[in-house]
Design a protein around this nucleic acid. Structure first.
Length: 648
RNA sequence: GCCGGCGUGGCGCAGUCCGGUAGCGCAACCGACUUGUAAUCGGUAGGUCGUCGGUUCGAAUCCGACCGCCGGCUCCA
């Protein structure tokens, strides 16, 4: 009689042949037995530690979603007999199943599939596990070529999906006469599925290889309760409302004219203004932090990228060359570093000049593959807030640490305050340089990262070909993470370009380079801030800080006079003098997310006080115009994230 | 780049399956109203239906190629 140790410290004796589920609360959907996830029907052969698995945990949701994927495959098979099963893993928030369906299935078919899944759930079929030999498994899978491939790969490195290498047996789950090869575990029965919804259909190659058969991939999401599912769908809708591509059009910020080409944005006057404000403040901070401002052209002869190594390592990401009459090839620059290097190398440098920080808003062009271009966050032409810091090895650690502090401080001023760091190490294949250099560089970055007291995530093999890097990841207002800043350490380019400085000892030394972009790119940063603020930018970044609505025609002149006063004081002001109702003009201001609106009519002009409407609808009455202007200037100056205007 | 979906006035959409010389709402413009914190009323103008080619007496509609967009895979600032 096996003894079960439960999480509360108690031990219960399980009668021989009884499943672990009989010792657990009915709310459990599976169990963790000696650290391994098991079905509730698992029968222990010896003493063990057992934890119940509740559905609203990471592992619980994994089991729930995996079971839902299983039922999806069962439903598709019921609708289209002859369906061949691929794999059906869980993913963030849901699951998918790859299937070879003997029919063309589109999103229009998803409601039918969902309905069939609900029917299977209502039938409350138990999931029954059977462990069989691989020979028996192959016999059962005569009609399932993909699953056969998985079983044939058992015990080899070819094993796919949830099938682990080394297994000598295969497990099946059977319900209602339908069965599927599956590692499990599953919920006890189809009646225990939670709330689910199918979300998308797409194509996918078997094992992700385009030489293989193409399968239909059906995506779904599954949650413990309907309320959780609703909350998830609400989150998706919230993300959709914040989509910078839609806000870019609605707020007239930027566009991607087809005539120019994929991934190439133009900024409209309102977006251009925001962009200018973003850049101006960044420039100011860089001046304060002893950066030197430089400038470089957009194209160069190929030799520069031959020397830098970009044509060896990065050619796929570059636009093809332009060839001049004499046969000389010119390339659009995908990076600014070689240019800054030439500035450094333009004359002999002394250790007294280091660290030398060369900064530029540098426009670069990268040939991103057509399928990956996405709004402002993944473009083919972008401007990086790029700097290259030339430093001695001795100064390097200190420089990295102060750079990281500077980075976080700058990002905080733009309203981002929730970060974690990612340390990317040497790529296995694409890398140049000695191992010792990589180790020293990686260690220096690690030290700097540790000093920030932030969560540090490792990204093995994710570095650039010339050095390791730290990325600053920021979480936005709704908890999504975005890669912002990147800081890369580089011993290679100084060597390739033969860079030196004269040391205090009178000898020649090689500097180390730090590549860094804090916004990442102005375009991506713009897109991220748009989503972070849902288009409602803080006052200091708002294109129009004060929006004036005259009540009647006879108030228009007074409105313009007030606007002139506010402009003279330093505010950005718009007057809506269109011949529309006050309500309509208020609505228009609200839709463009104007932070402050004042309505100017006879009453206000007579009293000399105004009622200000804040974004969101709150009204503050009885304020003198000068007080309003002063308050807004102060809010803007401090880059406040709150609307600080108040009646007091 | 690959798979799937899609492309109709500035924006959001109908019309495409079952070919027969484009329609709605908002925005824009004009007029009336002179207005008090999210849509006053009436009128006008605006589209070679992404591009090119093919089928047809006739193509927004059917076929092909290309361009672009969206979702996913892979990759990145």
């Amino acid at each position: 009689m096996p003894a079960l140790r439960l999480p509360d410290g108690t031990t219960v004796n399980l009668p021989e042949g009884e499943p672990v589920g009989s010792a657990l609360a009915p709310s459990a959907i599976a169990a963790r037995v000696d650290g391994t996830l098991r079905d509730l029907s698992f029968v222990p052969q010896a003493d063990c530690t057992v934890e119940p698995l509740e559905v609203r945990t990471d592992d619980g949701l994994h089991v729930l979603r995996h079971s839902t994927a299983h039922v999806l495959a069962q439903a598709v098979t019921r609708l289209w007999p002859g369906t061949k099963l691929g794999i059906g893993p869980t993913i963030a928030d849901g699951f998918y199943y790859d299937l070879a369906i003997p029919a063309h299935v589109s999103v229009d078919d998803l409601p039918r599939v969902e309905e069939t899944m609900r029917a299977i759930a209502a039938e409350d079929q138990p999931f029954v596990r059977e462990d069989v030999s691989t020979e028996e498994a192959l016999r059962r899978l005569t009609e399932q070529p993909f699953k056969r491939e998985i079983v044939e790969g058992l015990g080899t490195d070819e094993a796919a999906g949830d099938m682990r290498t080394g297994a000598q047996t295969a497990s099946f789950y059977r319900n209602d006469g339908w069965e599927d090869l599956c590692l499990g575990p599953h919920v006890p029965s189809t009646g225990r599925l939670g709330a689910f919804k199918l979300t998308a259909v797409s194509g996918a190659y078997w094992r992700g290889d385009e030489k293989n058969a193409q399968l239909t991939r059906i995506y779904g999401t599954a949650w413990a309760t309907q309320a959780d599912l609703d909350a998830y769908l609400e989150r998706l809708e919230e993300a959709e409302r914040r989509d910078h591509r839609k806000l870019g059009t609605d707020l007239d910020l930027f566009s991607f004219p087809e005539e120019i080409g994929s991934g190439l944005a133009v900024f409209h006057p309102r977006g251009g203004l925001i962009r200018m404000l973003m850049e101006d403040y960044s420039r100011q901070r860089h001046v304060e932090d002893d950066y030197l401002f430089v400038n470089s052209p957009h194209i160069t002869k190929r030799q520069l990228f031959d020397v830098s190594g970009h044509l060896d390592w990065y050619a796929d990401g570059m636009f093809p060359p332009m060839e001049l009459d004499g046969g000389t090839e010119y390339y659009l620059k995908p990076m600014n570093c070689p240019f800054h290097i030439l500035i450094y190398r333009s004359r002999t440098r002394s250790y007294r000049e280091l660290p030398m920080r060369l900064f530029e808003f540098g426009s670069v062009y990268r040939y991103e593959k057509s399928g990956v271009v996405h709004g402002l966050t993944r473009v083919r032409g972008m401007t990086q807030d790029d700097a290259h810091i030339f430093t001695t090895r001795e100064q390097m650690g200190q420089e990295l640490q102060s750079l990281l502090s500077f980075t976080l401080s700058l990002l905080r001023d733009y309203g981002l305050d929730d970060f974690y760091l990612e340390l990317s190490t040497k790529p296995e294949e694409k890398a140049v340089g000695a191992d010792e250099d990589w180790e020293e560089a990686t260690e220096a970055l690690r030290q700097a990262a540790m000093a920030m007291n932030l969560e540090l995530v490792m990204d093995p093999g994710g570095g650039a070909f010339y050095g390791p890097k730290i990325s600053v990841q920021a979480r936005d207002a709704i908890g999504r993470t975005w890669q912002m800043s990147t800081i890369q350490l580089d011993f290679q380019l100084p060597q390739r370009f033969d860079l030196h400085y004269a040391g205090a000892d009178g000898k020649r030394h090689q500097p180390v380079m730090i590549h860094r972009a804090l916004f990442g790119s102005v375009e991506r940063f713009f897109g991220v801030l748009t989503e972070h603020y849902a288009g409602a930018f803080p006052l200091w970044l708002s294109p129009e800080q004060l929006w004036i609505v005259p009540v009647a025609d006879r108030n228009v002149q007074a409105a313009h006079e007030l606007a002139g006063r506010a402009r003279d004081a330093g505010l950005r002001v718009a007057v809506d003098d269109s011949k529309q109702s006050v309500g309509k003009k208020i609505r228009a201001a609200q839709l463009i997310k104007a932070p402050y609106v004042i309505v100017v009519g006879d009453r206000d002009l007579e009293a000399g006080t105004f009622t200000v409407r804040k974004r969101g609808g709150e009204e503050v009455a009885g304020l003198g115009f000068e007080a309003i202007v002063r308050s807004l200037l102060e809010e803007s100056r401090t880059r406040s994230l709150e609307q600080t205007l108040s009646a007091g």
